[in-house]
Design a protein around this nucleic acid. Structure first.
Length: 443
RNA sequence: CGGGGCGUAGCGCAGCCUGGUAGCGCAACAGUUUUGGGAACUGUAGGUCGUUGGUUCGAAUCCAAUCGCCCCGACCA
């Protein structure tokens, strides 16, 4: 992408509406624009990041055997009356009425709708287990939206729902989700800790939240510091293997890790040696639930089991806040100059800064590198604006491009360009002819 | 929803107390000179001062209502 052809409305000063780092940086980098309190437009750069996160989430869900579908944002109130949540959900649910006076709502979540889809098509235990998910915009009319996309009213969420014949099978689904989530966060560059959680309005007995430690987080968490050393690694997982999944879950859920909702000071003191006791603020980036027959009972989602009996299906649901993750990643990766995207979600991997637009050689070299990088499929943003070099460096740093190629008179004579890493701030001189292969090796 | 703050040009702000018809920096546009760390000069353009009503000869300024945004608290991906 050429900067001169792009729409990148960066700001030099911070709009007064922003308080926390991620919100400030998202506004300054031209990623988002507020439409109304808690509701944002995603500008081209922001959308690019959002889609990268989405892509990783989808890949890891599909790898775990979960099937994508897409449900509507608008749902009939009748379904929610059936489950009893139309009254329970409260003011957070946006209720609307169509021209025929039908009661509708903008979905805050999809248990009812998915259960109806399930029950109208699945009748036999032979079709189980089944897990469906989608990534879709949700609306929850928060009392106080804040912190940009971290607590918006409209937000993009991956929500998934599993259907199993009994509790044992449903627990495996629960475990499978935990494993897939751990992998997902790791690919996003985040250290997310599963913590025992309350079930809230979703209901049920089992639940874990996934939290990323950050000073700007809204939850207070208590944990055994040794869990921070856990690494998922790139290990392959057989998601069908009940024992293997259980083992991973056991490993990650054994150390004490709880939010202020479930925290028990006595247990904490008893189980965790003083030197490993960790207390921090954290950002919640996902939650998984097992809630048994809470929805299948009232909504009549029955399947025939192997004995020919009609039994309510066991269910769970699972959410990852995709739009929130964009903010959470910035909270985890930034410095005083701006964002430092992990390569996996960076909107562009490489930025080319042509420092002397008036110089023919500098332009030719920049153009050549740009087209070569584009040809090999490395996403590249080329700053071809007629601006001062300093201004271009600042922009690249602000928007967090991991690798910067500087083309300018200093190296040109020697046939060199400069390659700078945004995370380490280290620079090296690379022969112009080798730059593409060097990048292909490192990125 | 309770408590607090703020709405003046795209962004950041001054002016308001003590009414006299709007200003600064950055950004934008045109030109000249610049060209490896947010360039300089010259010029141009851009605002019914959130909205409505009131007081007044006269309101950004005083009064009232209303809308919006932000912060703190109770709730949540």
């Amino acid at each position: 992408m050429r900067m001169t052809r792009y729409f990148l409305p960066v700001l030099r000063e911070v709009p007064s509406e922003a308080q926390i780092t991620s919100h400030k940086l998202m506004l300054r980098a031209g990623m988002i624009k507020q439409a109304v309190s808690g509701i944002y437009s995603w500008m081209p750069l922001g959308l690019k990041v959002l889609q990268k996160i989405e892509r990783i989430v989808i890949e890891e869900q599909e790898r775990a055997g979960h099937l994508p579908l897409l449900m509507p944002t608008i749902q009939p109130a009748s379904l929610w009356k059936k489950s009893g949540r139309y009254d329970d959900y409260g003011e957070e649910m946006l209720r609307i009425r169509d021209r025929h006076n039908r009661d509708l709502l903008y979905g805050p979540t999809n248990e009812e709708l998915i259960t109806e889809i399930f029950s109208s098509h699945v009748k036999s235990y032979r079709d189980l287990p089944l897990t469906l998910f989608h990534i879709q915009w949700k609306f929850r009319d928060e009392m106080r939206p804040r912190f940009g996309v971290m607590r918006g009213r409209e937000f993009l969420m991956k929500d998934g729902y599993n259907f199993d014949i009994d509790m044992k099978a449903a627990i495996h689904s629960y475990n499978r989700h935990m494993v897939s989530y751990l992998k997902t966060y790791e690919r996003l560059g985040l250290k997310a800790i599963p913590m025992r959680a309350d079930t809230g309005p979703i209901g049920g007995k089992y639940s874990h939240e996934f939290l990323v430690l950050a000073d700007t987080g809204e939850s207070e968490v208590f944990f055994d510091k040794r869990i921070l050393d856990f690494n998922f690694g790139i290990s392959k997982v057989n998601f069908e293997d009940i024992d293997e999944c259980q083992k991973i879950v056991d490993k990650w859920t054994t150390p004490y890790a709880r939010t202020d909702e479930t925290h028990n000071p006595e247990t904490f003191e008893r189980e965790v040696p003083k030197e490993f006791q960790g207390v921090s603020k954290a950002i919640e980036v996902g939650q998984i639930f097992y809630f048994g027959t809470k929805y299948s009972d009232p909504m009549g989602a029955l399947v025939t089991n192997s004995e020919g009996k009609q039994v309510p299906v066991h269910m769970g649901s699972h959410g990852i806040g995709v739009s929130r993750l964009a903010g959470a990643i910035i909270e985890a990766f930034h410095d005083e100059k701006g964002i430092k995207w992990p390569v996996s979600v960076a909107p562009y991997k490489v930025g080319i800064v042509n420092t002397v637009m008036g110089d023919q050689v500098s332009c030719e070299v920049s153009e050549k590198i740009y087209s070569e990088l584009s040809n090999v499929g490395l996403e590249t943003i080329y700053d071809d604006r007629d601006e001062r070099a300093g201004s271009k460096f600042t922009t690249m740093e602000l928007i967090g491009i991991p690798w910067r190629i500087t083309v300018g008179p200093r190296g040109l004579k020697k046939g060199m360009v400069e390659l700078t890493n945004r995370h380490t701030s280290k620079s090296e001189e690379v022969p112009t002819d080798n730059i593409v292969s060097v990048l292909l090796e490192t990125v």
